[in-house]
Amino acid sequence: MAIRGIRGAISVEENSVTAINAATVKVLQSMITTNQIAVEDIVSVFFTATADIDAVYPAQAAREMGWVNVPMLCFQEMQVRDSLKKIIRVLLHVNTDKNQAEIIHVYLGEAQKLRPDLTGEINNGK
């Protein structure tokens, strides 16, 4: 079994606890469902958020999903001129027997513009 990284990102409608938590839950659920990951196989999670998202840590939503034993860190995303606003990015580290090519990265909402080359079946309606 190997540790693999799964990328995900989602746009947030507004800088509010409700919107941030809802978006975080949506992207995390999509990532684990699409890649058939059990919570006990999650090694750790890194979250970044653009500077315009500061109402709550995205990790709070994961804790509310029951991910109480998963190590998580939240960071502010690097500010790049003309980059997308109100974006939460996720790097999920998991124990899996899947090879790198079998991993499906999940980009939702406006975040699909970030890495169209990595978007998987979930983003293409398949």
Rank of each mutant, 00 (worst) to 15 (best):
L84R: 08
L118A: 12
E64G: 00
G125Q: 11
L114G: 03
T48A: 09
R63P: 00
R81Y: 09
N21F: 12
T24A: 08
V90P: 03
A23G: 15
R7Q: 05
K126S: 14
N99A: 02
I53F: 06
A23S: 15
E77H: 01
C74A: 07
S16F: 12
V68N: 05
G120N: 14
V27W: 12
V12H: 04
A101P: 07
V68L: 05
K126P: 07
L73G: 03
I20W: 15
N69A: 12
R115T: 01
E14G: 04
E13I: 02
D117S: 13
D41K: 05
S11Q: 10
D97Y: 00
Q100R: 10
I37G: 08
E121C: 09
T50H: 13
V27F: 11
R7M: 05
S83Q: 14
A111G: 06
M78L: 04
L28S: 10
S16A: 13
I42S: 08
I6D: 05
S44Y: 09
Q60S: 03
M1I: 00
M1K: 01
A38Y: 08
L92Q: 08
F47T: 04
T48F: 05
A51G: 12
S44C: 12
R89C: 07
S83G: 07
I104H: 11
A62Q: 06
L114V: 06
Y57R: 10
A62E: 08
Q100G: 02
E110V: 14
E77D: 01
I20M: 14
M1Y: 01
M72R: 02
K85W: 02
P116Q: 14
